[in-house]
């Protein structure tokens, strides 16, 4: 017993150091996959208050660019609505039909905190549970996809951006139909890569990459980027596809969160797969 007390006395500083270090490290490694400790993130009350103040000052700096981007999007959408079309055939009668059912709903938000130079980059946006945001929902901007909601508080949420190690959004190459998972190697915030595309599929450089919409958190066909280079993976029948993101993550501010109204239905039917196999 005496020896034990002497031992603790001798190593008490190292033990305090080790204790605090273990706390910090467990927090870091668990949070990357399972958001638990809410108070340590930028969606907590104090941190989000500071960030909101900062955003209210800095948001004006890129105002012109953001307005132009929103205006372009407006023009694109305006082309699709009915006043832009002339009726050609007077014989047809339009009836409100039930052929279309709304599947996706969008909630607008503003990025108040972001980084691009770390291995795992998380963005904070100014909407949260009060606006119906839940973990796992997709986030995109007018030019491309941003990421997936990782953690939420009442009025703020943290987005796990595509600039992280394991965001795993499923994407599809529009011209060929090949699909794979989006990856980021942590080096350049302008370039990403796609894994899992078999090298017997012909792929053209410059083809457009869009979301596949398989997991239900993104609608199909949102732009992700354009293919820059193609290399074959050594020893595997796979392409190493590198592409340029269509969104510039260093300046993006206005985003939309995707609410999939049929998500529960999809989850329910997908849960039934393993049960069928077991029988």
């Amino acid at each position: 017993m005496h020896n034990l007390i002497a031992f603790f006395r001798r190593f008490r500083i190292f033990m305090l150091f080790a204790l605090l270090q273990i706390y910090a490290l467990t927090n870091y490694f668990t949070y990357l996959n399972f958001p638990r400790s809410q108070w340590l993130t930028s969606s907590s009350v104090v941190a989000s208050a500071i960030l909101t103040v900062r955003n209210s000052i800095t948001k004006h700096w890129a105002l012109t660019e953001n307005n132009i981007a929103l205006q372009e999007e407006n023009v694109r959408l305006r082309k699709k609505i009915s006043p832009s079309f002339i009726r050609i055939d007077n014989q047809l009668v339009k009836i409100d039909d039930s052929l279309y059912l709304q599947q996706y709903d969008y909630v607008p938000g503003i990025i108040i905190n972001s980084s691009c130079n770390q291995r795992n980059n998380f963005f904070t946006i100014n909407i949260g549970e009060k606006q119906g945001i839940k973990r796992g929902m997709g986030v995109f901007s007018d030019k491309g996809i941003i990421g997936v909601i990782h953690n939420t508080s009442d009025h703020f949420s943290v987005v796990k951006s595509v600039l992280t190690e394991s965001v795993n959004v499923d994407v599809i190459i529009e011209s060929s139909g090949a699909f794979g998972l989006l990856k980021w190697d942590g080096k350049d915030p302008r370039r990403g890569s796609i894994s899992g595309i078999s090298n017997d599929i012909k792929i053209k450089k410059g083809s457009k990459i869009v979301t596949r919409g398989g997991a239900g958190n993104f609608p199909r066909g949102l732009t992700v980027g354009h293919i820059e280079t193609l290399k074959s993976v050594e020893g595997k029948p796979l392409w190493d596809v590198s592409f340029i993101f269509s969104e510039n993550y260093r300046v993006v501010q206005n985003v939309y969160v995707v609410k999939n109204l049929l998500q529960q239905e999809q989850n329910k039917i997908e849960k039934e797969i393993p049960e069928d196999i077991q029988q």
């Binding site: 706390y23 910090a24 490290l25 467990t26 927090n27 870091y28 949070y31 990357l32 108070w39 340590l40 993130t41 930028s42 907590s44 104090v46 941190a47 500071i50 960030l51 905190n113 980084s115 770390q118 998380f122 904070t124 943290v158």
Partner: peptide, 8 residues
């Protein structure tokens, strides 16, 4: 807490 790095 402010810069979303969780312990780094």
């Amino acid at each position: 807490a402010i810069s979303n790095t969780y312990g780094l």
